[in-house]
Amino acid sequence: MIGPNSRRTPAHIARPRPAERGARTSAMIASLDAEGRDTIAAPFGHALVDLAKTRDDIVGLTADLSKYTDLHVFAQAYPDRFYQMGMAEALLMSAAAGMAREGFTPFATTYAVFASRRAYDFIVMAIAEENLPVKIVCALPGLTTGYGPSHQATEDLAIMRGMPNMTVLDPCDAVETDQATRAIADHPGPVYMRLLRGKVPDVLGEYGYRFELGRAKEIRGGSDVLFISSGFMTMRCLDAAAALEKDGISCAVLHSPTIKPLDEATICAEAAKGGRLVVTAENHSITGGLGEAVAGALARNQVHVPFRQVALPDEFLDAGALPSLHEQYGLSVASITARVKDWLND
């Protein structure tokens, strides 16, 4: 079994001594901080097990990363429907395509960097071009690991957005991961879904949120700023909105978990309301992700509003502890609130 201290650990990161491993792994590979929030363990794995109770077409495949994509929960429940493909992402995607052709609904898991970079052509030719119902579910999206560029999938949304037939999702939390897993099982085509694994925060539960494929939904209203966000950045935007409210700045949060197809109608309608500053927020490179998708939608629909992006820079990122990296690269709540204040004062 491959883990964060295996040979998939990048060579430029010193391997921690045994006594250090727990703390270092927690700091460098945890999904994200969730201080003050309840968490749910392995929501993807448990949702897949639940689906499989009534659907014998559901199968799970992984590239030697079942424990680190929560697919081990499914493997334990349905060992005869679990396939361990080894460290071979091209084989993983090709096998998933073959199973889809035979009437199965394969869920293929690995790390986001390995799916988007190593297996790209196999996904295009074997899955996307044939419009097969393979669900590619990938852990460590964006800056959710401190192991450096070899493991940080900061451009995966851009890569997958450019692929015809591919639906692209970036869920916020445990609630949405559970709901989205069930929804994509019914979707007739291929899906790429980012995965928060392990103990995942419950962010949207208190809002009575229901995931709908292809739909963006307002989580909270506000008159000065409109955040349009995806993934765990919706959690950060909600926290930033609460902090900014104390300073008399009213912020709305529009959560857009489906990056492709983008809900242009809702986004443009909300952006056109009342002269608010529109701020997109994503755990992805500033190039090619949610921000540019929203900017394109606004331009095509002639919605002219002040627009800013919270995103990762177009560069290879440092290794280190996640809280420090999120502060360094502007994904922390403190960074978001400070930048919004500056933008409003421009």
Rank of each mutant, 00 (worst) to 15 (best):
G142F: 06
A139Q: 09
N301H: 01
L213N: 04
H72E: 01
H151M: 15
A77L: 08
Y111C: 12
T39Q: 12
A23V: 12
G289R: 02
K135R: 10
L325S: 10
V294P: 15
L195H: 06
G330M: 07
Y68A: 09
D38P: 14
A338C: 05
E129W: 04
S285G: 14
A96I: 10
I249S: 02
K199F: 07
K273P: 11
L91Q: 04
Y192W: 02
L132A: 03
A242T: 02
A265K: 08
T181E: 13
G296E: 12
R101D: 12
E245H: 01
D70C: 05
V191Y: 00
G45A: 03
H284N: 13
A126D: 15
E176I: 10
A34T: 14
N165P: 03
A90T: 09
A319L: 05
K217E: 12
I267W: 01
L169E: 08
E245Q: 12
A271M: 07
G36V: 05
T177W: 08
V294A: 11
V59T: 02
H12W: 02
L312V: 12
E270L: 09
V279P: 05
K273T: 09
E20M: 11
A185R: 08
H187I: 06
D202T: 13
S250F: 00
S256P: 04
P16R: 07
A185M: 10
P257V: 04
R210C: 06
P133D: 04
I228S: 03
H151C: 15
D186T: 01
G289N: 06
R308A: 15
F82I: 00
E264A: 14
L254T: 05
F316I: 03
H72G: 01
E264G: 05
S256T: 04
A334V: 14
D38Q: 07
A34F: 02
A319W: 00
R37G: 12
M87Y: 03
A139H: 02
P133G: 07
P306C: 07
A128S: 10
R24G: 11
V303M: 06
E89H: 01
G214Y: 04
R7G: 15
V303F: 00
D80E: 15
D239G: 09
T145R: 09
M87H: 09
I13Q: 06
H12M: 10
G320F: 03
I13F: 05
L204Y: 01
R276A: 15
E327W: 00
A108R: 00
E264V: 12
E245L: 09
S26V: 06
T287C: 06
Y207P: 09
R7V: 13
R210P: 11
D318V: 02
T145D: 07
M1W: 00
R220V: 15
L196S: 13
C251Y: 01
A100Y: 02
A41D: 13
G274W: 00
R21Q: 15
P164Q: 10
H284T: 10
F82H: 00
N283M: 08
V333G: 08
G148C: 12
L51D: 04
S230N: 14
E155C: 15
Q84P: 03
P10D: 07
Y209A: 09
P257M: 02
P16I: 07
D170P: 07
D224I: 08
M160L: 14
L71G: 06
I123Q: 07
T69Q: 05
D202I: 11
V168W: 00
G189P: 09
D57C: 01
L92M: 08
M163W: 02
K217T: 15
D318I: 04
T54E: 14
